[in-house]
């Protein structure tokens, strides 16, 4: 079997947030024993509510944040102790906010050149050539390369961020909500661009979004996160056709498809909001789960293997 593009084993991350002088610090387990691998050339979508740990997971996979436990392997190599420049050649990020992720004082072409220049051993003419190639790949003109970020639209800025991610010709791109700040028409342009790049360059994506329709469109496999854990991970088509975890079902039912006359569904989650500093006993979803039954509050469900994926729920056991 070929080496997975990304593999994470027992990944965990805690935060301790001070609550003032006299209160005990709040201990948040943002990512809790997460395991998965992403085959080269595929797209793993990660979905889940705000605060469930998606960005924390992404930052650890990018090597931008140390795990509290566990390890990350990228292209079969352990991230820990890897040289920064080597890491940058393997894996690159595209973040949500094209406004704050680009330095406003630099011209577009210098922003795109930055990762290449940081490699140290590249000639100026090589930099120019690769920047021009990146600009063209994402559909920006040479003239747009001479502008400042403030002189571009939101969609164009996200193209700059993608060009910057591609300039080192990485194998893997981690996209954290890459289209959430964009209008739907611009979102469609960017999603089409990402799909084209994946096909042409054989890229692997970890694609984080809270928009399930977008994830369904781009992902080959989908992981559903809840309070730091992956509670279901399935082939995309199977997950959307036949979700097995009650939380996945609630998420899918909450999606308001553009179909008039259907009204707004009641997904039956109640209004107890999950708190990552206070994770419930047993199944962590049980206080909100419409299907909760006898063992759920006391016993943590085991991971059950299905033919097309994994699910962590007593009902599936």
């Amino acid at each position: 079997m070929s080496v997975p593009a990304i593999e994470v084993r027992g990944l965990r991350r805690e935060f301790r947030a001070s609550q003032g002088l006299f209160a005990a610090p709040r201990r948040v387990i943002a990512v809790d024993d997460v395991n998965f691998s992403v085959p080269a050339g595929s797209v793993l979508g990660v979905v889940g509510e705000s605060g469930c740990g998606k960005t924390t997971l992404a930052r650890m996979i990018l090597g931008l944040m140390e795990p509290s436990a566990g390890e990350v392997l990228v292209d079969g190599k352990r991230l820990e102790g890897m040289d920064r420049r080597a890491r940058a050649r393997l894996i690159q990020p595209v973040f949500q906010d094209p406004f704050s992720s680009l330095n406003p004082r630099r011209r577009v072409r210098d922003i795109i050149a930055m990762p290449l220049v940081a490699q140290g051993d590249v000639t100026t003419s090589e930099v120019d050539r690769r920047v021009a190639e990146s600009l063209e790949r994402v559909g920006l003109s040479t003239e747009q390369g001479t502008r400042f970020p403030s002189q571009l639209s939101g969609g164009q800025r996200q193209r700059v961020a993608i060009a910057r991610a591609l300039v080192l010709r990485p194998r893997i791109v981690v996209c954290d909500e890459p289209t959430s700040a964009l209008d739907v028409s611009v979102q469609a342009q960017i999603l089409n661009l990402l799909a084209e790049l994946r096909r042409d360059l054989g890229l692997t994506y970890l694609f984080i979004s809270h928009n399930l329709a977008v994830v369904e469109h781009v992902a080959s496999e989908v992981a559903v996160m809840y309070l730091g854990r992956i509670v279901e991970k399935r082939e995309s088509e199977a997950l959307f056709r036949d979700p097995r975890h009650p939380y996945t079902r609630a998420l899918l039912d909450s999606v308001l498809t553009p179909e008039p006359g259907l009204g707004v569904p009641d997904v039956g989650l109640g209004d107890i909001m999950p708190d990552p500093a206070n994770i419930p006993s047993g199944c962590r979803f049980h206080p909100r789960c419409p299907a909760c039954f006898a063992p759920c509050a006391a016993t943590t469900p085991r991971l059950t293997t299905l033919e097309d994926g994994l699910v962590e729920c007593h009902l599936a056991g």
């Binding site: 739907v184 469609a188 553009p258």
Partner: peptide, 25 residues
């Protein structure tokens, strides 16, 4: 154009581009 840009859950096809509106406002 706007309606064709929105991926509709259950009806999306992977590897098929979404509709889009060329250009910018």
């Amino acid at each position: 154009g706007l309606l064709s840009c929105v991926p509709v859950p259950g009806k999306v096809k992977r590897d098929e581009p979404l509709g889009s509106i060329p250009g910018v406002v």
